[in-house]
Design a protein around this nucleic acid. Structure first.
Lengths: 110, 110
DNA sequence: TCTGGTACTGACAACTTTGTCAGTGCATTT
DNA sequence: AAATGCACTGACAAAGTTGTCAGTACCAGA
């Protein structure tokens, strides 16, 4: 009985990974942790990522409550994404992951 | 140009995730962090996981230097996997991930 | 009016990961 | 001698993820 990571898994590690796992999610969150950005700004800040993937990841992150989508009523339409209160609790975890990642990249070079 | 996570990515977050990402790796590492186990012991301790997947994950973890495979010369053959020195540096990161995961599981229930 | 930008959606192809299953070599037990 | 357990490998199918591409609706500027 295959159990996808996207399903509710009782394992906390999997629960956490299901949130940040996705080809570009780490990078997206990293960018957003420095401040809110518009869809197109995010898009341009990660050149290899397609718009399709960006939007898919953004919507998943919104669903998980990590980021917030704010549509400004101005004309031209503007959509801004920012890290939520709840999402902020994730940033230190990301930093821990990142610093071990740096060590690991060093480690592999040898 | 699709870039798999398994390739060398310069992003430290991806580098870290490429190590622990895998359907059962979190659970395997969790078990092994409590002490060395034989292949078949690990296999039985995670009922939903197939032997094939166990061995694939184990070999990847060995390649990444996280765990060590020790084949005892005894007859009947015995293979033991244990967390390496280097792998120990990863355990606190796993704990950070895990505790956020627990919070997230709570969060989702509401 | 035409072009271009923003923020998307849907369909589908390509690629990756995971699962299934059969089979190997060796050793022990019955 | 046959069955069982251990630690695997290889081939392939199923499922999941990502990429490509076309298209929508709205608005601004030349």
């Amino acid at each position: 009985m295959p159990v996808s990571k996207k399903e509710v898994s009782p394992c906390p590690i999997d629960a956490m990974l299901s949130v940040i796992d996705g080809r570009w999610k780490g990078t997206i969150l990293w960018r957003l942790s420095e401040g809110p950005l518009r869809t197109s700004e995010l898009r341009r800040s990660i050149p290899d990522m397609t718009e399709r993937m960006l939007i898919r990841h953004l919507h998943e992150l919104v669903e998980d409550g990590i980021i917030i989508r704010v549509q400004k009523k101005t004309t031209p339409q503007q959509v801004r994404y920012s890290i939520s209160e709840y999402g902020r609790t994730l940033v230190p975890v990301l930093e821990t992951i990142c610093s071990w990642g740096r060590i690991h990249l060093q480690h592999k070079k040898l």
